[in-house]
Amino acid sequence: MSPEGIHAGSLAAATTYLDAFEAGDVTEMADVLTDDVVHTLAMSFDGGTEPYLVLTGKDQVLGFFSDILQQVSQRDLSDRRAHAGVGGEVVFVEAGGEAVLASSGTLYRNVYVFKFECADGQVRRITEYANPVAAHKALHIPLG
Results as ranks from 00 to 15, higher is better:
1 M>I: 07
3 P>D: 14
6 I>T: 13
6 I>Y: 02
7 H>R: 15
7 H>L: 15
9 G>S: 13
10 S>W: 08
10 S>A: 13
10 S>K: 04
10 S>P: 06
10 S>G: 15
14 A>I: 06
17 Y>P: 01
19 D>H: 05
22 E>K: 03
23 A>I: 02
26 V>T: 13
26 V>M: 04
27 T>K: 12
27 T>F: 00
27 T>Q: 14
29 M>K: 02
31 D>F: 01
33 L>K: 06
33 L>Q: 00
33 L>T: 00
34 T>F: 01
35 D>C: 05
37 V>C: 02
38 V>D: 02
39 H>Y: 14
40 T>Q: 00
41 L>Y: 08
41 L>M: 15
41 L>D: 11
41 L>W: 14
41 L>V: 13
42 A>M: 11
43 M>L: 14
47 G>N: 08
48 G>M: 08
48 G>P: 12
48 G>Q: 15
49 T>G: 12
49 T>I: 07
49 T>E: 13
50 E>Y: 07
51 P>S: 10
52 Y>D: 14
53 L>T: 08
54 V>D: 03
54 V>E: 12
54 V>K: 10
55 L>I: 11
55 L>Q: 12
56 T>Q: 15
56 T>G: 04
57 G>R: 01
58 K>W: 10
59 D>L: 11
60 Q>C: 04
62 L>V: 13
63 G>Y: 10
65 F>G: 01
65 F>Q: 03
66 S>D: 14
68 I>N: 06
69 L>C: 11
70 Q>F: 07
71 Q>E: 06
71 Q>K: 10
72 V>Y: 02
72 V>Q: 06
72 V>W: 00
72 V>N: 00
73 S>A: 13
74 Q>D: 15
74 Q>S: 15
76 D>C: 04
79 D>Q: 09
79 D>F: 02
80 R>Y: 04
82 A>H: 09
82 A>Y: 14
82 A>D: 03
84 A>G: 14
84 A>N: 07
84 A>F: 04
86 V>K: 11
86 V>W: 09
86 V>R: 14
86 V>E: 10
87 G>R: 04
89 E>V: 08
92 F>I: 06
94 E>P: 07
95 A>C: 15
95 A>T: 10
96 G>R: 10
97 G>Q: 09
98 E>R: 15
99 A>R: 03
99 A>Q: 13
99 A>S: 15
101 L>G: 02
104 S>Y: 01
105 G>K: 00
105 G>S: 11
106 T>V: 11
106 T>W: 02
106 T>M: 05
106 T>Q: 12
108 Y>K: 04
108 Y>T: 03
110 N>C: 09
110 N>G: 05
110 N>I: 06
111 V>R: 15
112 Y>R: 04
112 Y>C: 06
114 F>C: 06
116 F>G: 02
116 F>V: 05
116 F>H: 05
116 F>K: 00
117 E>C: 04
118 C>S: 10
120 D>N: 11
120 D>I: 01
123 V>P: 00
123 V>M: 00
126 I>M: 10
126 I>G: 01
127 T>R: 13
128 E>M: 11
129 Y>E: 03
130 A>C: 09
130 A>Q: 07
131 N>Y: 02
131 N>D: 15
132 P>H: 08
133 V>M: 13
134 A>M: 11
136 H>A: 12
137 K>Y: 09
137 K>N: 11
138 A>M: 07
138 A>I: 09
139 L>A: 10
140 H>F: 12
143 L>P: 06
144 G>I: 01
144 G>Y: 08
144 G>H: 09
